[in-house]
Simulated scan of single mutants.
Amino acid sequence: MNKIAYSAFIAFVASLLTLVSVNALSESEREDRDDAGLESITLAELAEHDSAESCWKAIHGRVYDITDYVPDHPTEEEVLLEWCGRESTEGWDNKRPGVPHSPRAEAMLERYLIGRLVDDTGEPLEPGPGEPTGAMPERQAEEATSPAQDERLARALLGLPLDGHYRGVFIDRGSIQVNITFDLRDGHIESLAYRYLAYRGVDYLALEEGDELYPVMLQHRQIAERLEGAPITRIFALYEPASLVDDIDGYSGATLRGAKVISAIRDALNRGVYAWP
């Protein structure tokens, strides 16, 4: 009986290994076949699909139309839309810093495959894992291979934010309240601006002089003006807004809600560089 059971077990394992091997081969063949027949899509064409109505993303050289999936994504829609219309390998490989999306997510992603990313001459564009478009030119990378030679690498190893363009959001109960954009140059803030600023249905960016809450809009403008050229650590002054902005027409620092602006800026830093200078 034991001999029969052992033989049956060996036969089962052999069958299982055969199925796994066949499946692996068929997956490889399917990928090769799909890539050969995929439509070529340039960065310019990709950039035209940057909204919830048409959201395309390029990941590891392939282009995906995830428009139908946007409403079903587990995070806030705005977070996903930040990656529409552009090369998104960095975000895909870093769902959280250093943590890529799961194999299950990869399988789901393949349902939305529509093309391959190419340059203007039709040559494939395929960044390495976590490497964003606009990375250091190959010649420069060869010349700067250590922290002593490569300032970007040195800053990363020290845990310092890299120079570049950043975007971040503060979201509460599924609604964006602050969406901010800024540049970092040698750790200093430049060109800070609001892409979205709202609270309880009020769009502060649309307010005009004479509106009741217009003074609050002026306070937020002061934040952008007074952080210009300041080191990134200056954002912590917003925990005490009166140290950074004026009390315009009797509006208090509490009305300013500076902590939400800090959260949006820190969200941008946590996401990493949106675009390289």
Rank of each mutant, 00 (worst) to 15 (best):
N2L: 14
N2W: 08
I4N: 06
I10N: 08
V13N: 02
L16E: 12
L16I: 06
L17K: 06
L19Y: 10
L19E: 08
S21F: 14
S21Q: 05
V22Q: 12
N23C: 10
S28K: 15
S28P: 01
E29G: 07
E29Q: 14
A36R: 12
E39Y: 01
S40T: 13
I41F: 12
L43E: 08
A44T: 10
A44K: 14
E48A: 09
H49M: 02
S54A: 13
C55K: 07
W56K: 08
W56Y: 07
A58F: 06
H60D: 15
Y64S: 03
V70C: 04
D72G: 00
D72C: 02
D72I: 00
P74V: 07
E78Y: 09
V79W: 00
V79Q: 09
V79L: 09
E82L: 14
E82F: 14
W83T: 13
R86H: 08
P97K: 04
G98Q: 05
G98H: 03
A105P: 01
E106R: 09
L109A: 13
L109P: 07
Y112N: 05
G115D: 05
T121N: 13
G122V: 10
P124N: 06
L125E: 05
E126C: 15
E126P: 00
P127W: 06
P129H: 11
A135L: 01
Q140Y: 04
A141K: 11
E142G: 09
A144T: 09
A148H: 03
Q149G: 00
R152L: 11
L153A: 13
L158T: 02
L158E: 15
G159D: 03
H165E: 07
R167I: 10
R173K: 14
G174S: 02
G174H: 00
V178L: 05
V178I: 14
N179L: 14
I180F: 07
D183W: 09
L184M: 05
R185Y: 04
R185V: 12
R185K: 11
G187A: 06
G187E: 11
H188P: 01
H188E: 08
S191M: 05
L192V: 06
Y196S: 14
G201V: 07
D203V: 08
D203A: 03
L207N: 12
G210L: 08
G210P: 04
G210K: 09
D211E: 07
D211K: 02
L213E: 15
R226S: 02
R226P: 02
R226D: 07
E228T: 12
G229Q: 04
G229K: 07
A230K: 15
P231V: 03
P231C: 03
I235N: 11
I235R: 12
I235T: 10
F236M: 12
A237S: 10
D247M: 13
Y251P: 00
S252Q: 11
A254T: 15
T255D: 14
G258T: 08
A259Y: 11
K260M: 11
K260C: 01
D267Y: 04
N270E: 14
G272T: 11
V273N: 02
Y274E: 07
Y274C: 01
A275R: 13
W276K: 10
